[in-house]
Simulated scan of single mutants.
Amino acid sequence: MEEILVAYATKMGSTREIAEAIAERIRSAAHEVTVQEAALVQSVAPYKAIVVGSALYAGRWHREAVKLLKRNEELLSRRPVWLFHSGPLGAELTPQRAPKVVRELAARIGADEPVTFGGRLTPETAVGFIAKKMARGEMAGDFRDWDKIALWANMIAERLVAAR
């Protein structure tokens, strides 16, 4: 059984970069970590613990992250699971409540509701007409708080060490 899976669903790459940063922090605590797109995860059976992250668009999680949770609900309920989403933009980040389906899945698998991390929207990474238009306005920028992400990942690593 492998140790930790960090799965993510992203549209413009920001959530993937957050997932990679989380994985690196957990690796630094001597854990084996696999980072993979949620769409490519067929089963969580090989893993002792799972982190799942999704981009948050218009209050919704990426479809592939939700599918991963639904498809693996029974196995996830028997493992430590942490959830996060990214996407809110602006200097004053307000934690965003997860969509109802994600809150319900989190409750059934015994996970806390997702933690919110800021997102990134830049002209270079924007995908789609609306995002490209927004990337030229006041919502443009990189609002990810790497220190907050590192602290959260360290908390996960510490809990995993304590569980050994």
Rank of each mutant, 00 (worst) to 15 (best):
M1L: 10
E3I: 03
I4M: 06
I4P: 01
L5F: 06
A7V: 05
A9P: 13
T10V: 11
G13C: 06
A19R: 09
A21Q: 13
I22E: 04
A23W: 01
E24S: 08
E24K: 10
R25M: 08
R25W: 02
I26S: 02
I26A: 04
A29N: 06
A29C: 09
V33E: 01
T34I: 11
T34M: 03
T34L: 12
Q36F: 03
A39T: 12
A39L: 11
L40I: 09
L40P: 09
Q42D: 10
S43D: 10
V44D: 02
V44W: 04
P46G: 06
Y47N: 04
K48Q: 06
A49Y: 00
A49S: 08
I50W: 00
V51E: 02
S54K: 07
L56I: 10
Y57D: 07
Y57L: 12
W61G: 01
H62I: 07
R63P: 14
E64Q: 11
V66A: 08
V66H: 04
K67F: 13
E73H: 05
E74C: 08
E74V: 15
S77Q: 06
S77T: 12
S77V: 09
R79C: 05
P80F: 02
H85R: 01
P88L: 02
P88D: 02
G90Y: 00
A91C: 11
A91W: 04
A91M: 15
L93K: 11
L93C: 05
T94D: 13
T94I: 13
P95V: 10
Q96D: 10
Q96E: 15
Q96P: 05
R97K: 14
P99I: 00
P99G: 06
P99R: 09
K100P: 13
V101H: 14
R103Y: 12
E104R: 11
R108V: 14
G110R: 13
G110M: 11
A111R: 10
F117C: 02
F117W: 04
R120I: 10
T122N: 08
P123Y: 02
P123T: 04
E124G: 08
T125R: 15
A126F: 01
V127K: 11
V127I: 12
G128S: 09
G128K: 09
F129C: 11
I130G: 08
K132L: 00
M134H: 00
M134A: 10
R136L: 12
R136A: 08
R136T: 08
R136Q: 11
E138L: 12
M139Y: 05
M139S: 14
F143K: 04
D147T: 13
D147A: 15
K148E: 11
I149C: 07
A153N: 01
A153F: 01
N154D: 14
M155R: 14
I156C: 06
V161K: 05
A162P: 01
A162Y: 03
R164M: 13
